[in-house]
């Protein structure tokens, strides 16, 4: 019985190394996008990348609202599509996508590289199985 609790505690502490949700827009000169994402009350954090053709947003939905994940993603996507009619908009809640976006933001890619890495992430997000 004692061992079990040790195991449970271990998992809980292992899981604790996560960071607070952040709100980042890259490239950071787009205030309009920030405004739209900030007023979404169904998400607690977001990270977004934008190049000339694509707008990629990774959102973070609080756990209890994740049942309606697809709906939330679609709603935000629609709103953004209205704002950016000539861009391909992708809104997705996924740890992997979020981490990849973080990596790109850290490296501060220039426009050409940015497009390339966005394409890479898009390929990832399309995989289904």
């Amino acid at each position: 019985m004692k061992n079990k609790w040790i195991v449970i505690l271990l998992f809980l502490t292992l899981g604790a190394c996560s960071d607070a949700p952040e709100r980042v827009v890259y490239p950071s000169d787009d205030l309009e996008l920030e405004k739209i994402l900030d007023k979404q009350d169904s998400i607690i954090g977001y990270k977004s990348l934008m190049d000339n053709n694509t707008l990629l947003v990774s959102i973070e939905i609080p756990t209890m609202k994740r049942f309606s994940k697809v709906k939330i993603e679609e709603n935000i996507k629609k709103e953004l599509e209205n704002e950016y009619p000539n861009k391909k908009v992708i809104v997705i809640d996924d740890l992997k996508i979020k981490w990849e976006i973080e990596k790109i933001i850290e490296k501060e890619h220039e426009s050409k590289e940015l497009t390339k890495s966005i394409e890479k992430i898009l390929a990832l997000s399309k995989e289904e199985t």
């Binding site: 998992f11 809980l12 899981g15 604790a16 190394c17 996560s18 756990t63 740890l95």
Partner: peptide, 8 residues
């Protein structure tokens, strides 16, 4: 992340 472990 910790919350998803608890939920799981």
């Amino acid at each position: 992340m910790i919350s998803s472990l608890v939920v799981a």
